[in-house]
Amino acid sequence: MSTILETRGLTRTFGAVVAAKDLNVQIAQGEIVGVIGSNGAGKTTFINMVTGYLPPSSGDILFDGNSVIGRQPRAITRMGMARSFQVAQLFPKLTVMENALVSLVAAEGPRPSFFRPLDTPERRERADAIFAEFGVSRYRDALVSTVPQGARKLVDIAMALVSQPRMLLLDEPTSGVSIEEKFALMDTVMAVVRQHGVTVLFVEHDMEIVARYVTRIMAFYSGEIIADGPPREVLSDARVQELVIGHHLDINALGEAA
């Protein structure tokens, strides 16, 4: 498997606080990587640097062999790396369909047409296919602000996938989602990303989710990666259990994809 994302000596400081310290990561095409860590461990800082939201203090980030340092988030998106957010970033006063139409227009090119309507039968057809994949068809004509949190998260992820990226970064995809909905949400998302062969890196606090869906875990603590490997290995690591999870974890009680 070829490397799709690589960071070299990636460091980010906020004054005296070191949020990310000399991170050297390699992620292969097709991997599903979970990023775990307590609050302030540097998980979101890592994702924000990789997607261009935050510039690193030093180090390099290579996506498909090309450095993304100094590039705007939109340029990184166009290179094939999409992301979703901890709080779903949608257009709340638009309908779910309109959100999808805007995403489809954006996926077609960086300069939307002055004359071609946003709403065309072809785009609607594509949007409907996406809604069917994500199981949100029944919300297509509802204002985003009125749909349930779980569906909103799915729409957020669907919008990120509209551009057919090769890598998807998810920041706590199940945060704010009820216990009943979170596995259904992840089942849906993982089925879609596997079908499209998308590499996934996602930040998650819920160890059940992590253990069930990822092929590899990176455990962050105080801006450093203290463990990196298969889920069973990382989650049973004594340091990870002490510093990241905060208690003893019965690995056998968790589901595992790997």
Binding site: R74, T77, Q89, A106, A107
Partner: peptide
């Protein structure tokens, strides 16, 4: 979101 859809 517009920025992360690839638009300026």
């Amino acid at each position: 979101r517009v920025e992360y859809l690839g638009l300026s």
